[in-house]
């Protein structure tokens, strides 16, 4: 290969040679430097030849495979003038775990169609489950488990708002609507006469309460909040009233069957005390705070 062909890539060695210089006239050190330069030049020529062959081969391959733009053999092998990718418009944060694990989560679902609750999937009937509560809100069931039967049908294990309290049963999952989960739990201590709302491991509210008097005891057990009522005439219930799945075992003749609520009062001076017909009474400021903090479906443990 001539020097002209490889032209601009390296410094012409001819200019470095002594004028009319015969090899025998150079000192041994100069001859050694000249041999080294010649070796380097040979290596550079070899490298260029390899790169050129690679470019030609790539271009040929692209044309054969139908690529949109055949690579020109005269183009640089690696272009550095291509703009980089634009920055993303989104600042996606690092994935983070949920703050509350499943152990602190309760679930509820609305009843989507009337159904029969059974002792076990496809087993004996316990009760019929309707669409509405006595106050006209959607009937909700706390979902505490699930099972797929031999026919591949999914069943939900639910807590019922019936006597005896703490009754659980199975309903077809298809009879229920979408699941909602809650992270809160209300604990009512009948001896201490307090209500404590927890969110996960954190206590978010504690307040004194009035509970059932003798002959109208507040039932104990595990229940859940079914609805929230406001804007009614009776001042005895305060500004907000929550309906629960608990029922009085003493006042079964009460209108609608004696459901237990959590509500305000027009007699705050009686709280704390054993003053109610079974309901959990709170001072109005406390029930308003509770209404801001406690979502529907929150489990209620009374003991």
């Amino acid at each position: 290969m001539s020097e002209r062909a490889s032209g601009p890539l390296w410094k012409p060695v001819a200019s470095a040679a002594p004028p009319g210089g015969a090899r025998s006239e150079l000192p041994p050190e100069a001859r050694a430097r000249r041999r080294a330069r010649a070796r380097r030049r040979g290596l550079v020529l070899l490298l260029i030849a390899v790169v050129a062959l690679a470019v030609v081969a790539t271009a040929s391959s692209a044309v054969v495979s139908g690529a949109a733009e055949p690579v020109s053999v005269s183009a640089p092998a690696l272009r550095t003038d291509v703009p980089g990718a634009p920055g993303s418009a989104l600042a996606v944060p690092s994935p983070r775990a949920m703050p509350t694990p499943a152990a602190h989560t309760a679930a509820w679902a609305p009843v989507r169609r009337p159904t029969v609750a059974r002792r076990v999937p496809r087993g004996h009937r316990v009760t019929r489950v309707g669409l509405r509560t006595p106050e006209g809100t959607t009937n909700l069931l706390e979902v505490i488990g699930r099972r797929t039967d031999a026919q591949g049908r999914l069943w939900a294990h639910v807590r019922l708002a019936v006597l005896p309290n703490d009754t659980t049963a199975w309903v077809p999952r298809s009879a229920l609507g979408g699941i909602t989960t809650v992270r809160t739990h209300l604990y009512v201590d009948l001896d201490a006469r307090t209500a404590t709302l927890m969110r996960g491991d954190e206590m978010v509210l504690r307040a004194p309460v009035g509970v059932g008097r003798s002959g109208a005891a507040t039932p104990t057990g595990r229940f859940y909040v079914r609805n929230r009522l406001t804007t009614y005439r009776s001042k005895a219930y305060g500004p907000v009233a929550f309906g629960t799945s608990a029922r009085s075992a003493d006042l079964t003749e009460w209108p609608a069957g004696g459901y237990i609520g959590i509500h305000g009062t027009d007699q705050p001076e009686l709280i704390p005390g054993r003053v109610s017909h079974g309901c959990i009474r709170m001072r109005n400021a406390d029930i308003r705070r509770l209404a801001r903090l406690m979502p529907i479906g929150t489990p209620v443990t009374i003991g």
């Binding site: 609507g177 459901y259 609520g261 509500h263």
Partner: peptide
């Protein structure tokens, strides 16, 4: 229109 109704302006029927 299919969402459950959980809040209502209605009188409680609880034992009180």
């Amino acid at each position: 229109s299919d969402a459950p109704t959980t809040h209502r302006r209605a009188s409680p029927l609880f034992t009180g």
